[in-house]
Simulated assay, not measured.
Amino acid sequence: MNYEHFIQQSIQWIESHLHEAISANEIAAVSGFSQSHFHRIFQNTVGISAIEYIRKRRLANAASQLLYTDERIIDIAFFYQFESQEAFTRAFKKVYQLPPGRYRKIMNAMHLHKEETKMTEQLKGWFISGSHPDHYEIGTDQKEIHQGRASGYLKSTDSADDEEFATMMQQFKADRYRGQRIQLSGFIQTKDVQHFAGLWMRVDNSSEDVLQFDNMSNRPLTGTTTWNRYSIVLDVPDHSAAISFGVLLTGTGGVWIDGLSFQTVDANTPTTNMQLENELMEEPVNLSFED
């Protein structure tokens, strides 16, 4: 059974309740599963427990508030349901290697907390492509983050229109994954996406023929959405040469990505491949165009 829809539903609920007390039973109830079953599938799907996910999301939001607001540390701690400033400090330091007050002071002093850093030609590993890449920009954002210190973003500029698209992408050799089924997963949020946005992945052979492909156009992200987890699953045939992947934005708006990962999965995980197999017919048909 594919649990992705149930996990997305649960994460959406979590995102809207991060500043509230959340019980394990409440989270499970959103999915419709028993508490034990829900927490098992959440751990297996996301890679961490639901409780750990909530803790990391609260800390990421707290880190952003430390840089972009003048809220007192104790108020931030209580807002995100930490029992005391000391408990918040211990948890924050474990993830960010600095206590909250020092983190705020150092980042402010170094001017490293710019909301967005445009890095169209300097973002390590990533490049921009598409129909009109000059009408879009990519970069890192230290305010809109899912976990850690930054996320990547792809945004339209004033020159873009709904007939254009761009992608922030990478390419790498398929050697490691040949003969396997792989899953690309990551966290995405969107703002004012007028057409659609989503993850995408493509597997090519040495002649650059497309062997497998999915761009989430059959499950698009539109409008403004909160952080959630999405995935693509493709087979990598033995004669594969390259794997390309990234985030796609068609039309105007903005999309943020964070926490991308690759892993091999077994045949029980259904593929999301959108390429139709081209099968030869037994004989020609409809030659008079009457059918």
Results as ranks from 00 to 15, higher is better:
60 A>R: 05
60 A>V: 06
61 N>P: 03
62 A>E: 04
64 S>Y: 08
64 S>R: 14
64 S>N: 10
64 S>E: 11
64 S>D: 09
67 L>G: 07
67 L>P: 01
68 Y>L: 10
69 T>N: 10
69 T>Q: 12
69 T>I: 13
70 D>R: 07
70 D>T: 10
70 D>F: 04
71 E>T: 15
74 I>Y: 09
74 I>E: 12
75 D>G: 01
75 D>V: 06
77 A>S: 09
79 F>W: 08
79 F>A: 15
79 F>V: 14
80 Y>F: 15
83 E>S: 15
83 E>L: 11
83 E>I: 14
83 E>C: 10
83 E>Q: 14
85 Q>S: 13
85 Q>C: 10
86 E>S: 15
89 T>I: 08
89 T>P: 06
89 T>L: 08
90 R>Y: 11
90 R>Q: 15
94 K>Y: 06
96 Y>L: 09
96 Y>D: 08
96 Y>C: 09
96 Y>T: 08
96 Y>F: 15
99 P>H: 04
102 R>F: 11
103 Y>P: 04
104 R>V: 02
104 R>W: 00
106 I>Q: 09
107 M>Q: 09
107 M>W: 08
108 N>T: 11
108 N>I: 00
108 N>D: 07
110 M>I: 04
112 L>G: 15
114 K>C: 06
116 E>Q: 14
117 T>E: 04
117 T>P: 00
119 M>N: 07
119 M>R: 12
119 M>C: 06
120 T>C: 01
121 E>R: 09
128 I>K: 10
129 S>R: 10
132 H>S: 14
132 H>C: 12
134 D>W: 05
134 D>R: 09
136 Y>K: 01
136 Y>A: 02
136 Y>R: 01
137 E>Q: 14
137 E>M: 10
138 I>F: 01
138 I>N: 00
140 T>M: 11
140 T>L: 06
141 D>R: 06
143 K>F: 06
143 K>A: 11
145 I>V: 15
147 Q>W: 07
149 R>P: 00
150 A>W: 09
151 S>W: 05
152 G>I: 13
152 G>D: 04
152 G>M: 10
153 Y>S: 03
154 L>E: 02
154 L>R: 04
154 L>W: 02
155 K>Q: 12
160 A>K: 02
161 D>L: 04
164 E>K: 12
166 A>L: 04
167 T>G: 00
168 M>P: 01
168 M>H: 00
168 M>Y: 00
170 Q>G: 07
170 Q>P: 04
171 Q>K: 11
173 K>L: 09
173 K>F: 08
175 D>Y: 10
178 R>E: 10
178 R>P: 12
179 G>E: 13
179 G>P: 13
180 Q>V: 09
180 Q>C: 13
181 R>W: 10
182 I>L: 08
182 I>N: 03
183 Q>E: 15
186 G>C: 11
187 F>Y: 14
188 I>E: 02
188 I>F: 07
189 Q>A: 13
189 Q>K: 15
190 T>F: 05
190 T>Q: 05
194 Q>K: 13
194 Q>E: 12
195 H>Y: 03
195 H>W: 00
197 A>E: 00
198 G>K: 00
199 L>D: 01
200 W>A: 02
200 W>G: 02
200 W>Q: 01
201 M>N: 02
202 R>N: 02
203 V>H: 01
204 D>T: 14
205 N>P: 05
206 S>K: 14
207 S>I: 10
